[in-house]
Amino acid sequence: MKNELDSKFLLQVFEKIRTNGDKKEDQYHLNGIVAYTDLDGYTLFIEDKNCKLQFGFHNQYHFDYETNDHFHTFEKKLKQIDKEYGAN
């Protein structure tokens, strides 16, 4: 299954997690979502306990999850963060 998420949306949610989340070492935690980058900052990672998203250079991304329900729950969490924390 191909999952389509808007690159602008992903970057926006990542920034909201970074801005509003609790920082623990090099990771930001917000509403069950963890967000962090690789050492050079070019690759973003956004994940919960069941779904992992790697978003990188040239807006390429990869999801890792076992069931469609895991993906849909993850997507709902991202949309909720976007809605709950409004414009930054």
Rank of each mutant, 00 (worst) to 15 (best):
E25A: 14
N20W: 08
H58P: 00
D48E: 10
D48F: 01
Q60T: 11
K52W: 08
K83C: 01
G56M: 04
E84N: 15
L11T: 11
K23A: 08
H70A: 12
N31P: 06
D38I: 04
M1D: 11
Q27S: 14
K76Y: 02
L10D: 03
L11C: 14
D22A: 14
F57I: 14
G32L: 00
E75L: 01
T37V: 13
T67E: 06
E84V: 14
L10P: 00
N50Q: 11
Y28P: 01
D6V: 09
G41F: 03
N31K: 13
F45S: 15
Q27A: 13
H72L: 11
F9S: 09
G56I: 02
C51E: 03
D6Q: 13
K77Q: 12
H70F: 04
Q54M: 07
Y61A: 09
G56R: 04
I46T: 07
D64F: 01
K8I: 11
N20S: 11
T73K: 09
T37K: 15
D64P: 00
G21H: 11
H72V: 03
Q60S: 08
D26W: 01
A87Y: 04
E75V: 00
L11P: 05
L5D: 08
D22N: 13
G41Y: 08
N88D: 10
D82S: 02
F71D: 00
Y36H: 10
K23P: 03
D6P: 09
L53S: 09
G56V: 01
K83I: 05
D64V: 01
I33S: 12
E84R: 12
T67C: 01
I17Y: 08
E66G: 12
F9H: 10
T37Y: 09
K79V: 00
L5W: 07
L44P: 03
H72R: 13
K24T: 12
M1I: 07
F45N: 09
L78G: 12
E47L: 03
G41M: 11
T73S: 12
T43M: 10
K77N: 10
Y42L: 15
R18F: 06
D38Y: 04
T43C: 05
Y28I: 03
I17Q: 13
T37R: 15
L10S: 01
E15L: 03
E4Y: 08
D48Y: 05
F9K: 13
